[in-house]
Design a protein around this nucleic acid. Sequence first.
DNA 1: GATGAATGAGGATTCATTCAT
DNA 2: CATGAATGAATCCTCATTCAT
Lengths: 209, 209, 209, 209
Amino acid sequence: MAVARSRRGAPKGESGKADGAFDRRAQLLAVAAELFARQGYAKTTVRDIAEAAGILAGSIYHHFASKEAMLDEILRDFLSGLHEGYAAIEGHDDDPREALSKLIHVSFSVIHGAPHAVAVYQNESGNLAREEAFAYVGAYSARIERIWLRVLTAGQASGVFRPDVDVKLAYLFIRDAIWSTVRWYRAGGQFDSEAVADQYQNLLYGGLL
Amino acid sequence: MAVARSRRGAPKGESGKADGAFDRRAQLLAVAAELFARQGYAKTTVRDIAEAAGILAGSIYHHFASKEAMLDEILRDFLSGLHEGYAAIEGHDDDPREALSKLIHVSFSVIHGAPHAVAVYQNESGNLAREEAFAYVGAYSARIERIWLRVLTAGQASGVFRPDVDVKLAYLFIRDAIWSTVRWYRAGGQFDSEAVADQYQNLLYGGLL
Amino acid sequence: MAVARSRRGAPKGESGKADGAFDRRAQLLAVAAELFARQGYAKTTVRDIAEAAGILAGSIYHHFASKEAMLDEILRDFLSGLHEGYAAIEGHDDDPREALSKLIHVSFSVIHGAPHAVAVYQNESGNLAREEAFAYVGAYSARIERIWLRVLTAGQASGVFRPDVDVKLAYLFIRDAIWSTVRWYRAGGQFDSEAVADQYQNLLYGGLL
Amino acid sequence: MAVARSRRGAPKGESGKADGAFDRRAQLLAVAAELFARQGYAKTTVRDIAEAAGILAGSIYHHFASKEAMLDEILRDFLSGLHEGYAAIEGHDDDPREALSKLIHVSFSVIHGAPHAVAVYQNESGNLAREEAFAYVGAYSARIERIWLRVLTAGQASGVFRPDVDVKLAYLFIRDAIWSTVRWYRAGGQFDSEAVADQYQNLLYGGLL
DNA sequence: GATGAATGAGGATTCATTCAT
DNA sequence: CATGAATGAATCCTCATTCAT
């Protein structure tokens, strides 16, 4: 059963497909992410996804075990990628200020690169927390939070960051401001991703006054 | 028909009910707001609401025309109250810095006072934008945005606020950071509402560095 | 319980009511007949009736045991009145041709006088046939049919009516043509009740050619 | 999606199905027509239809968008067929008397061939008039009426039909007498379709006296 | 008599999912 | 791989009816 295929699948070159072939799995996932992001997971039907992909609803089940499995894969891919990105920064950079800047810019870059997945995470992760099958979402979030807190704490310790702000609150402040942009940020709109990142960092570093 | 009764209903004193009476409408609305906030509107069933209120699902319809009507009333009450609060600040305060502080604190106060309604707004307003029946949500949001932008622009004009930040981006930054707190803020938790408001304002005004 | 009051109730003069009083029972019945006629019995809700009468749905049950009881009373009143009218003709008239004319004119007069009840009978009696509680509808119809058949048979026997038509078919033909007029006949419209009766009788007696 | 399939579907021979295949759509429509005719549209539940067809209620929606869509298709098929039949007569026949005879016989033939659809039309079209989605019912009725009126008027003009009857009333008289037979006519009963048609025409042409 | 809150039994419809072809 | 028919549980909502006030 196709469903049993590893989520990571085979790299392009190893695929048995001809050059012109396209990965229906990937297409379905992309379509699902977009619909989940736009309409919400609950309001998106399997038929919506299938129609947007040009097949019938039943055919979805050749590729995924369930609608939930699609959500799962979207979130897992997103979170693991995000965590990887953050972890790389922490591993290589010693300067807290530099590290924070990179955390911020990587975040915006992810929003720019995979806005649907980000939106899905943003909108659904709250409700998913209670479901055992999605425990990993909370786990990833916690690991990510720890990375940020380490950077922020190091910054305070080294005197680069203000000492009178609660590190946890500062993290939530930054995190929410950044990820919320996915709701209004549109590629090709008034601001490009980098510009938003710069302005936000600027505002965050220097304050409004 | 109770359904036709004004949304605002009669003030307590004018009610013909005895002391022990309680307003089932209000109770249902409160219960619905909580469930909508926790599970999402789509995943909350009318039965969920009814059971939480101790009546049968069908009985809901004696008080509200539909599940959507409950959502509508929750959002309308929230938005009109919020707009009133903001408008009062703008009308009475000349100092932009003072006005911004009040905008921030009123926001946190609303989050503290009606967290469920805030969460519902936060989670559902995006998807509702496309539905004609909820056009007023967008209209209110636009009016509120204009208030904030006026305050911020005035602050820049008077030299109180930094001139090199885009006013619109600054608004979105502040707005998202503040309203997102509804997702993790819990009354009686580690931080109280005022403390969060102060820290956020502090961070926002002075920056992280 | 008011419901237990005899359907025939007390004559006006014996009523304990003041002059200005009006009979809510009768009003409800009239309203119900109109709605049953216009929307069909199944599609008419008790609330429809109550609202049209200016009371609440629950209050209906002070006057009638059920929605079905209202239908029952409408049909019973109609059928007993109709049967009375027909029986009076048969009792007093010997000339078949004269008797048939009277049957026809009485029919149109009833349609004119109680169009809603007629329409209800016309529309609902078919489906009611299977319900035991409405067995009397079939019984009345049969008695009425027998009256008509006697008149028609007598007319054939006396040589007034054509001998080559099946009496039963002729009855159905006449009956259906007449009662169907209730669907399009409107008091104050192009034709008045008497004119329609005359034309129909004329057509029926002399034929189209 | 089967629902989207043309109402007329593909002719048997073109169907990809094996010999044993039967058209569930057609079966459902036939079952629905019978139930609508017997119990009325409002009192017939989707479950009734499904059970009579040997499937579950939800499965109906694989074939039809709604219960109303089934009614719609039944009426549309009936009316378009009827109109076609009438129009063919008007187009090919010059003699009004001959034309009227054909109109009458075609009517009875339709009643005989599709009694359920006729009964549904007879019982429901009145209430449907007010619903916009069924405006075409009134439109068809008007076109059909015009055909009959043209034939009757031509008959009067050529001196074949009595000049002293109102053409419109005559049409209604004939129409109602004929179509009402669907309520009592049963194939295989005392009278066959042709016999009823002959007797009715006979009575109509020559009159009762 | 009337009110209005509540009941509880459906009813139409949706939808994730299965499976034979 | 895809189809399309079917399932069955769940959902929103309706409505006749009851009953305490």
